[in-house]
């Protein structure tokens, strides 16, 4: 099964390739010559000060934002303005948002099966089974028939993760998944993400949770003012940061 899936991938096996990416909001240059390659199975943590363009960058990868210069490849497919291509890419990329963004009028189960049924054209029974499997994986199988409003923040975020997983994406992206949570719920969500990482899922995570970054990241990308100023392994990044902006950032965030 895994082998069949792999045939889709480019020879190099890159999950995401970003080359010379520029983006402007009006006249404001948010992303400045961003170059980044993420291999399949790799876990990349993106961090940096507020407003440095982290969200904008990962939103470009699944076409929630457009960009004006440069190229993005997802699983070897070039992202273009072609709507069909955008749909294809979005099916490959799962996204988890800071504000969960669950659909409040649908049950947890319906949240999870909506896209498999309507986008993947999966029979309902199969989609239900899939949803049950992933809800069990994020450890809330018993909440399937509740509405999102009846769950705690941590539970909602885990449903959001399960919902994204139900599309069997090749890449999971997280945009500050724990920033909107009460402190006591951060751990349950991070634990879920660590488990995902241990299963070999390709992950791009924007987060300020440095403990998580240390534990699971293969590489840490540090952004400032729309540019990537340093990419490094966690050990080097924390103990021997190269760029002065990184040192300043770390000294602030680690006190």
């Amino acid at each position: 099964m895994a082998d069949i899936e792999n045939q889709h991938a480019e020879p190099g096996g890159n999950a995401v390739e970003i080359a010379g990416l520029y983006k402007w909001f009006g006249t404001f240059n948010v992303l400045v010559d961003v170059n980044l390659t993420i291999k399949r199975g790799e876990r990349v943590v993106v961090c940096g000060p507020s407003g440095s363009g982290k969200s904008t960058l990962i939103r470009c990868v699944n076409a929630l934002e457009d960009y004006q210069r440069g190229k993005i490849f997802v699983n070897g497919m070039e992202l273009s303005t072609n709507l069909k291509r955008i749909d294809e890419v979005r099916r490959e990329v799962g996204m988890v948002f800071q504000q969960f963004n669950l659909f409040p009028h649908l049950t947890v189960m319906e949240n999870c099966t909506l896209a498999p049924i309507h986008v993947r054209k999966m029979p309902k029974r199969e989609a239900d089974a899939l949803a049950k499997k992933y809800l069990a994986r994020v450890k809330i199988p018993e909440q399937a028939d509740k509405y999102p409003g009846q769950l705690s923040g941590g539970q909602q975020q885990r449903v959001a993760i399960a919902r994204a997983l139900c599309m069997n994406p090749r890449i999971m992206m997280f945009d500050e998944p724990t920033s909107a949570l009460d402190p006591e719920m951060v751990k349950e969500v991070l634990d879920t993400m660590v488990e995902l990482a241990n299963d070999g899922t390709t992950m791009v995570v924007v987060t300020h949770e440095m403990g998580f970054a240390r534990q699971v990241a293969d590489r840490i990308v540090f952004m400032d003012a729309g540019q990537i100023v340093e990419i490094n392994t966690p050990q080097e990044f924390f103990s021997n940061p190269q760029h002065e902006r990184t040192r300043l950032f770390l000294s602030q965030i680690l006190k």
Binding site: N62, R90, N101, F103, H105, H118, M167
Partner: peptide, 29 residues
């Protein structure tokens, strides 16, 4: 909220499905 639309897009829902399953049921209610 814009987040609802973004989440639906990120799941790969297209225009008509996004409106009929996510936006309109909430908006009409």
């Amino acid at each position: 909220p814009q987040g609802q639309i973004e989440a639906a897009k990120a799941l790969g829902l297209r225009y008509w499905r996004l409106n009929s399953s996510i936006v309109l049921p909430q908006a009409l209610r």
